[in-house]
Design a protein around this nucleic acid. Structure first.
Lengths: 199, 199
DNA sequence: CCCTGTAGGCGTGCGCTGTACGCCTACGCC
DNA sequence: GGCGTAGGCGTACAGCGCACGCCTACAGGG
């Protein structure tokens, strides 16, 4: 048995995450991560076979911190809590948001989370197609809304431009209102959960 | 007045879209588009200042075909129709789906569409924060769900793997059910719209 | 304690990317 | 017919992911 590995996959992911946090997602390159670790670029390929795999590792690291045990409450509140925990975890590293969509299958942490959501749904009368639709709705909203608020949220700089346009009066008005609105994610999630009740 | 331009922005977008349809989004490069048009790479920069701008042009071309006039029906059906028209238009060019999120502000077609959605909402009692949340929900679901079904949908090849895992029994069962489910997008959208009713 | 086989670490190089810069020339107007 | 504008493009550069193959640090067996 020769030379042991000097890095765990977590070490690798942590280094990549540090780069992403510091320089943004476009700053993530194999060379940058290698430098972060003080090793040669090609050494990384002893741990991952492609760059994509490294990205998946980063996502899983971020998501591994979320508590998947639903709180004691109504099932609606349980779902809301589970979804918002993922959002909070990801919000701590906003630059990884685009990775969420791309690598969601390959993250064991997210699979565990999904299983937990399904348990809550199942225990409250959701089965078959209705449960499939419910999970898709939640994941779709979660990831869609996170991306929305990350790169050019309705309440952001991008909308300041829209607010000035007179050709889209309602859009301008909505953009203005959005800037003073607090937690859009939470309110939207409430809408989705209410929709699930009646499905 | 010297030499006139030989291309319209639409020509440029159409060429880029052809490349994307044929070779996928990673196949989109300035060189590839230039070759598609039979011109030199750098000539493209007479029409766009960056690659990003070209991508936005492509998205707008795809979305420019959607009819933004709501049908005569209940406001719920009007919303559903508007959302599904965007989905249908984008589904005709699945490879552009990732561009939807990135460039949604810069597409006049999508701005016009948003304005139309807001008109329907406004005419049916949605104002202020409630209207902001409604629009965000719809766009979030639209873009999130499109991405979900595009790259590794729940009912897809990726889920065949999950269906085999015994560590996530509910996820496996759900994945199996998903493969036989017809229009997941439609059912999910119905959930969101129902949620809006009670908001 | 040395020797050996395994596998970790990495230097080089290739084909690709976006795009800055500057030249050449086709063209509409006077 | 000449001119000036601006379209078209060739070259070049920095950076990317990663294939390949060498060197060597190390754990185990004699």
């Amino acid at each position: 048995m020769p030379r042991p590995k000097s890095l765990t996959p977590e070490d690798l992911a942590a280094a990549a995450l540090a780069v992403i946090d510091r320089e943004g997602l476009p700053g993530l390159s194999m060379r940058a991560v290698a430098q972060e670790l003080g090793m040669g670029t090609m050494s990384l390929y002893r741990y991952v076979s492609e760059r994509t795999e490294l990205e998946a590792l980063v996502l899983d690291l971020v998501l591994s911190t979320v508590d998947i045990r639903p709180p004691e409450s109504s099932w609606q509140n349980q779902i809301v809590a589970l979804v918002e925990r993922v959002r909070d975890a990801v919000a701590r590293h906003p630059n990884v948001i685009p990775l969420t969509m791309a690598h969601r299958h390959r993250s064991p942490a997210l699979l565990r989370w999904s299983e937990s959501v399904l348990e809550v749904l199942s225990a409250n009368g959701f089965t078959g197609a209705r449960r499939v639709v419910a999970l898709r709705c939640l994941i779709g909203y979660l990831i869609g809304a996170m991306q929305l608020e990350h790169l050019g949220p309705l309440s952001g700089t991008g909308t300041a431009v829209m607010a000035g346009r007179t050709e889209f009066p309602l859009l301008a008005e909505t953009a203005t209102a959005a800037r003073s609105l607090g937690d859009e994610f939470h309110h939207g999630l409430a809408v989705v959960v209410r929709g699930l009740e009646g499905s």
